[in-house]
């Protein structure tokens, strides 16, 4: 993560209020401002189930699928956006898709996600687990932007994906998609 992305978070933490404790996969406990914690729909849901009066006691919400090193990164993102994002009414799914199509990834988020690709995948997975839609969407878009610039072979190598097509299947698919491959297509391949 870039220095710019992490340095600006300290001044943007939400006003002190109710504190929520969560623990990561390794058992490390973090104390979050309520506003920050509730950006995760999973944590919000648990808190609502428990009743908010219990939020201030010593109970710790276990986030068993999130490693500490990834949660630290996500916490930086949550704190920044808790301080900078405007309150928005919930959008219809179609509106959210339109917004994602049309809006570029903000500069701060680009820097935040300018990390090793394996780490982006982990952040994306954790965001999915914690149900932080905006972060998940940013990760998806970032990964998509990377994929668009790579050849099929590069993608397989980069992400360790096995080519499980039989030679016949692969040849068939290659024929079908010859027009959109990276190498210059054969003349008249679209007929």
């Amino acid at each position: 993560m870039s220095t710019a992305a992490s340095s600006s978070t300290s001044e943007t933490i939400a006003e002190p209020g109710l504190k929520i404790k969560v623990s990561t996969k390794e058992g490390e406990v973090f104390e979050l401002d309520e506003k920050v914690a509730k950006m995760s729909q999973v944590i919000r849901g648990i808190l609502e189930d428990l009743g908010e009066q219990n939020g201030g006691d010593d109970s710790v919400l276990p986030l068993t699928q999130v490693e500490t090193r990834i949660f630290r990164k996500i916490l930086v993102w949550l704190k920044y956006h808790a301080g900078h994002d405007k309150e928005e009414a919930p959008k219809a799914e179609e509106d959210e898709i339109i917004a994602r199509f049309c809006e570029e990834i903000p500069e701060w988020d680009q820097k935040f996600l300018n990390v090793d690709q394996a780490v982006i995948l982990e952040i994306m997975l954790a965001a999915d687990y914690l149900d932080i839609k905006k972060l998940r969407g940013l990760c998806c878009k970032t990964v998509a932007n990377i994929l668009k610039t790579k050849t099929v072979e590069q993608i397989r190598e980069m992400y360790g994906i096995e080519n499980d097509f039989t030679p016949e299947e692969e040849e068939e698919i290659r024929k079908q998609t010859a027009w959109c491959e990276d190498e210059p297509p054969r003349q008249g391949s679209n007929h």
């Binding site: 995948l121 998806c140 290659r174 959109c180």
Partner: peptide, 30 residues
């Protein structure tokens, strides 16, 4: 962590961001 560890619904989130041309091209990955 590799792409194989990514659940299908998350993978779909990634592909949703990709235009049709590239979707077709990347269908050859696996």
């Amino acid at each position: 962590m590799t792409m194989d560890d990514i659940p299908v619904q998350v993978l779909m989130g990634v592909f949703q961001e990709i235009d049709i041309m590239n979707r077709l091209r990347l269908a050859r990955v696996s």
